[in-house]
Write a protein that binds this DNA or RNA. Sequence first.
RNA 1: GGACACCGGGUUCC
DNA 2: GGAACCCGGTGTCC
Lengths: 242, 242
Amino acid sequence: MAGENPGVVEIYTDGACVPNPGPGGWGAVLRYGGHERELSGGEVERTTNNRMELMAPIQALETLTRPARVDVYTDSTYVRGGITGWVTKWKANGWLTSEKKPVANVDLWQRLAAAAARHEVEWHWVKGHSGHPENERADRLALAGMHAALRTAGIEPPPERQAVRPPRSFTQPSDSGMAGDSGQCRATTRQGRRCAVSARPSGLCHVHDHEVQCGAPKKNGEPCAIATGGGPCAAHRGYRRS
Amino acid sequence: MAGENPGVVEIYTDGACVPNPGPGGWGAVLRYGGHERELSGGEVERTTNNRMELMAPIQALETLTRPARVDVYTDSTYVRGGITGWVTKWKANGWLTSEKKPVANVDLWQRLAAAAARHEVEWHWVKGHSGHPENERADRLALAGMHAALRTAGIEPPPERQAVRPPRSFTQPSDSGMAGDSGQCRATTRQGRRCAVSARPSGLCHVHDHEVQCGAPKKNGEPCAIATGGGPCAAHRGYRRS
RNA sequence: GGACACCGGGUUCC
DNA sequence: GGAACCCGGTGTCC
């Protein structure tokens, strides 16, 4: 079971999107006999995790120069379920979901079906982030592809695990205090960024609401909402709660 | 804030686990009026940091002979957030997380809730390792509890944070695959004594078992269990953990 | 309602 | 760098 698989190409794929939706990448590990090859790519424009999960096997299969027996491994039941079953129905019914709504990502589904038709493909599902080595490699390739795309576009990817900020128009001019529709927590993270979790009626997320906000009264009388990990924030050092 | 708190019991708790997961310990400092009491304990079997963080207030609250007003201080938002908020939801929904998976450590959460119900408890969070004197004492008590448990089991705790490593001699697993009666780990401690912990099917205890296996991910994703005395086995030479 | 994936946040333990 | 745990979301299908 461990040895090579003569005459069969093994393809391990993964996709990533940071945030989702947002910039994304895909990665694939191809193995044939003793040979291995790694593919990756990414998109700067807003895309989705599922589009990236589709792109990985598309690019891998399109890379093969001639028809082959292929084992494709993906951690996405969306991809596997689609290509092994749903597409057949979609082709017949005009690409409608079971709820009669248009199927998403039709362009990629058709491209994947065409690429797979050239080969004899077996589709396998593997659980993600469970120590499967090739899946983890594909995962890292996906991130690498995304980062490469961002750099090519002149966007410097954050140095560490910091969030990638989508091109634009994510931060609305909320300096009015109007609140209103904005369901986003107004607390600030340790990194100085805005907390992205949805807010409770208080305007803070579940964490910042009752766990770690400064709480000191601001000049306008409202409690300071800076996240501190407990105790007062730097601006209110010395403040003690009742 | 430093003075005594008439009629109120103060409890400072902490937990530790080396490694995590692995053997662990918990510690608590109880203060009532002018009296102080220290509690600690540990487990040799594989446990987690969060279980130890839970055990500390459990044991402390269960120690109180009759209902009291209590201030509990923990550095774990897992414990504080759980007991002050999440448990209520969990009791109502059958102990499922927001992702509909079973809540971890249900046994301890129920035990903690029962222990807290006997008293009037206020739960406080303090940042760990920030000079809070009682928290640091609880931290040392947790390590002491773990060490005591290990010694009781015949395992010499590592001097610092170094891992316990048995000698390479046990690489020979054979001599009888029968196992059966031999419930004792066949590894040897640094001091040359025989490890007294009960063995797994591998013939090694939980500590020596996961410290000395190859650990490289096999093709099926599971970790290679070949015992090597450290480092990868011959088949996985070149593989690095993490 | 179910499933998989992809993200954001927080604390602790290493 | 990782593990233990929790909260909050989207992308998609059945």
